[in-house]
Design a binder for these strands. Sequence first.
DNA 1: CGGTATCCCCCAAGATACTG
DNA 2: CAGTATCTTGGGGGATACCG
Lengths: 122, 122
Amino acid sequence: MKEECISEQIKLRGKIYPCTISLTMDLVGGKWKTVILYHLKDGAKRYSELRKEMPAVTEMTLSLQLKQLEKDGLISRKVYGKKPPIRVVYDLTDLGKTFVPILEAITEWGNQIVRQEGEFVD
Amino acid sequence: MKEECISEQIKLRGKIYPCTISLTMDLVGGKWKTVILYHLKDGAKRYSELRKEMPAVTEMTLSLQLKQLEKDGLISRKVYGKKPPIRVVYDLTDLGKTFVPILEAITEWGNQIVRQEGEFVD
DNA sequence: CGGTATCCCCCAAGATACTG
DNA sequence: CAGTATCTTGGGGGATACCG
């Protein structure tokens, strides 16, 4: 039971990581991935809904991050309809759902800091 | 009780974030910060110990990330001695310690993935 | 021993415009 | 409606050499 972060290297899908934490950060790290996951945690959403809820992200970046999350098996992408208007719906996969508790812990941790020394702005 | 991630913006130490998750990722995100925190979770360590345990990080980057973690109040830096050889010891602050449960959850989550489809290499 | 000082490169991310 | 295409930029991180 000593398979924590240290010592051995890890190979996953062709990539080598020095430890498990590195691996996780590769899958969900970056500026927006966790935010996207957060917005999907209570159920599937359309592309346009995500856009509306995350105005700080550009279309390009949102689209790119969604693709990566899909590739890494954290979210699913379903297309409804053939001709515009098309509906594209994103949802957490089973793997993605297992990350929700961490997402909520991260949020709560951040909120503690904000309560102590930050402020909510409009 | 509606202060989760959505809607309001957050201001902390002069920076504006669209949500709490963004804030947290700014503090502990990036390629190495979580790894450093992980290596400090069981107690204080010297600079050279951290180096040895994290050979994949360059000195420059390690030093830089340590500074940022210190500035953000997650770790402390104590210097013992005046003339070389000097001892510099890093440790988690109280704030840093509150992040340990998340660190362990992240590690466990990554380990699950490795068990299912990855491999440990030497 | 515990770092800095430089230099450099890559790519995440932004801005803007366009499309099936 | 749900994206691409293209161009640009900033800075995170690497490599190497040097310092108090």
